[in-house]
Amino acid sequence: MKILIVEDEPSLREIMVRTLTREQYVVEQAADYASASDKIAAYDYDCILLDIMLPDGSGLRLLEELKKRRNRAGVIIISARDSLDDKIEGLELGADDYLPKPFHLAELSARIRSVLRRHQRDGYECLEAGNVRLWPDSRRVEVDGRPLDLLRKEYDILHYFMARPNHTVDKAALAEGVWGDHIDQVDNFDFVYAQMKNLRRKLHDAGADIEIRAVYGFGYKLIRP
């Protein structure tokens, strides 16, 4: 899988390159509009991470170029502007997703995987980890081919981790991802523990070979067999 990172901030670019390389992607990088344009013309990519605020032009123009070339690469817009106009315009120009800065690295890789899956399997989406399979479209979970009944929040938590395997997730980030933005003044995460306890018991009882392991003092991590 080949990924092009178009980002002008060197430090952030380096982080993204290192993270994605570690996840076994082939990563290319471009620091500005001109070099990104050259790379798109010369090579094919499976996924492009595109910062739309570049020193020598807007990333949105790059999207138009891709459209003209009938390039099938999946595009995730990365923007510091978090503006609905940019998002709508980007998606209309053929971008697959929109990720506002600052994002979590786990979130970034989840989005990349989702885009890649959609492009390869033509919209048929299924997350797989060990003997657990999860269909986000129908909110269905199977363990070893047998359906597993989960409550709403339990399902959301499992989905969150299966989209981010091998990432250690901070419990505050998990709470924000599952419960929404309202957790900013929470100083007690009992509600996460309670749901997590039930989810882990259900997974264990169903014979799942994955485990959501607690990382003491920090949060959780999904461990595949």
Binding site: S11, L12, I15, A80, K101, H104
Partner: peptide
Amino acid sequence: MQTPLAVCRNRLEMLVD
């Protein structure tokens, strides 16, 4: 501030991962 915040947050996450 968004980009520097992203850099800080992501470097810590790399450390944890």
